[in-house]
Simulated assay, not measured.
Amino acid sequence: MKIIYVCADPGIPVFGCKGASIHVQETIRAFRSQGATVTLIAARLGGAPPADLTDLVVHQLPAVPKGDLATREKRLLALNADLQDLLFALAPYDFIYERYSLWSMGGMATAQQLGIPGILEVNAPLIEEQATHRDLIHTDLAQQVATQAFQGATALIAVSAGVKAYLAQWAQSDRLFVMPNGVNPKRFPQNLRRQTTTDQFTIGFVGSLKPWHGLDILIDGLMQLHQNVPEARLLIVGDGPQRAVLEEAIARRHLTSQVQWTGAVDPEAVSYWLGQMDVAVAPYPASETFYFSPLKVMEYMAAGLPVVASAIGQLTDIIDHGVTGILCPPGEPQALAQALEQLWRSPEQRYKLGQAARTFVLERHTWEHIAEDILAIAQGAAKLTLLP
């Protein structure tokens, strides 16, 4: 089976360190592990591919320079013509798999014209996200792109029930499938965790330091925890736009010596840093529109770490409270501190939670399982297109 994978989002360096980058790479790996041949079309590469993807055929879309936002949006929209020209030139292939981006509709349109399945993966309501957290000028054009892409797709892969509910305004339920993020078991061996004789209690966070990750809540929780557990320290793996603000908040609370920053790390290095943690956290704030499928939580669990996370959105489906992790009310530092202190006091509970979490995620949420399901959808859709 020959697959064209499209990522036309200039904000995603497909060979970079972001969660979205890892998602792209792991999906491609999983398709290839199922015997498929994959060709990648991307707007942004972000450096050289990992060693196991150096033989991947890659086509890069023309770069759109930064500048006036209104002009940039229209230029990104115009890239659909370049995308479609390339897709027609690469034919024949079995189906197009595209990660939905704000200005791209060419992949699904081309699949329709070629009479093959077009599968669109949707990770977020990007129009609302862009308007809320960044800037968006041509909202009407973005809406038109979404309508054409969502209605033109043979199947829509939503990463969470929240995203599926969002997509229901464009598609019937028989075209909507929920597939949360997964893990690659090869990156998380059984004996990943460090062996230490120190009393240090390391709380870990992995992520890109965005406002919606709840790190301000984590810092407040650490301050409260430190009063009862002075050996507690925080390990932050990642970098992002909130770092300077967070460093100031940490300094005001006199916690600078208790916090270690790694900066951005390659995906291959994440497992090492997870092995340095005693507990991992996902302290999301309260939100009425939580639609994420947090990759970090899946990877925490695969590493055999006990997880403390906010009881919100998909996390309540992934984490069985008291069995595969601990859930806290979102946005409450005191509850977070209490949960962490509980785990500090009980190494046995930490071990049991971590092992149960690892078993759960490796049995149900691997990228290979996801790829199998996607290929089954594509094959089923292909059979329907061949019917007279």
Results as ranks from 00 to 15, higher is better:
375 L>A: 04
319 I>C: 06
338 Q>R: 13
323 V>A: 11
318 I>N: 02
269 A>T: 00
376 A>G: 00
339 A>S: 15
357 A>G: 10
279 V>F: 04
333 P>H: 12
276 Q>G: 12
280 A>T: 07
284 Y>A: 10
363 E>Y: 03
262 T>K: 03
264 A>E: 15
353 L>I: 03
304 G>K: 06
275 G>V: 00
330 P>H: 10
273 W>M: 08
280 A>D: 04
371 A>C: 05
288 E>M: 03
326 I>S: 11
296 K>W: 03
367 W>N: 04
257 S>R: 12
263 G>C: 07
348 E>R: 14
376 A>P: 03
328 C>E: 01
283 P>G: 13
309 A>G: 08
359 T>V: 10
342 Q>L: 13
291 Y>E: 12
298 M>Q: 09
357 A>L: 03
330 P>Y: 11
278 D>S: 13
336 L>C: 10
353 L>E: 03
274 L>T: 02
260 Q>C: 14
292 F>N: 08
276 Q>P: 06
258 Q>Y: 10
329 P>D: 04
305 L>V: 08
303 A>L: 01
261 W>I: 05
318 I>M: 15
368 E>G: 03
368 E>S: 14
370 I>P: 00
323 V>G: 10
353 L>G: 08
318 I>V: 15
280 A>L: 01
362 L>Y: 08
308 V>C: 08
276 Q>W: 02
350 R>M: 03
263 G>M: 11
275 G>D: 00
264 A>G: 14
379 Q>H: 12
336 L>H: 00
260 Q>T: 15
329 P>R: 03
333 P>M: 13
261 W>L: 00
283 P>D: 10
316 T>N: 13
310 S>L: 08
259 V>I: 14
323 V>Y: 08
357 A>Y: 08
354 G>W: 02
329 P>G: 02
259 V>G: 10
320 D>E: 13
331 G>L: 02
331 G>H: 06
293 S>A: 08
361 V>I: 15
359 T>C: 07
355 Q>H: 14
367 W>M: 08
355 Q>A: 12
365 H>N: 13
336 L>Y: 06
273 W>N: 09
279 V>K: 07
318 I>L: 15
283 P>N: 11
285 P>H: 07
305 L>T: 01
280 A>K: 03
294 P>A: 09
375 L>F: 01
338 Q>C: 12
282 A>D: 05
279 V>Y: 05
317 D>F: 01
349 Q>H: 06
357 A>V: 04
352 K>I: 09
288 E>K: 12
265 V>R: 05
315 L>P: 05
351 Y>M: 10
364 R>M: 02
278 D>A: 11
294 P>T: 08
291 Y>A: 10
306 P>W: 00
288 E>H: 07
360 F>N: 11
334 Q>S: 14
341 E>C: 11
263 G>T: 01
320 D>V: 11
292 F>T: 07
341 E>Q: 15
351 Y>G: 02
371 A>H: 01
296 K>Q: 00
343 L>S: 05
309 A>E: 02
318 I>T: 14
273 W>A: 11
346 S>K: 00
320 D>H: 14
338 Q>G: 00
315 L>I: 14
269 A>M: 13
315 L>Q: 13
262 T>Y: 07
323 V>T: 15
324 T>I: 10
257 S>K: 12
330 P>E: 09
364 R>I: 02
310 S>M: 03
269 A>F: 06
313 G>R: 05
278 D>L: 10
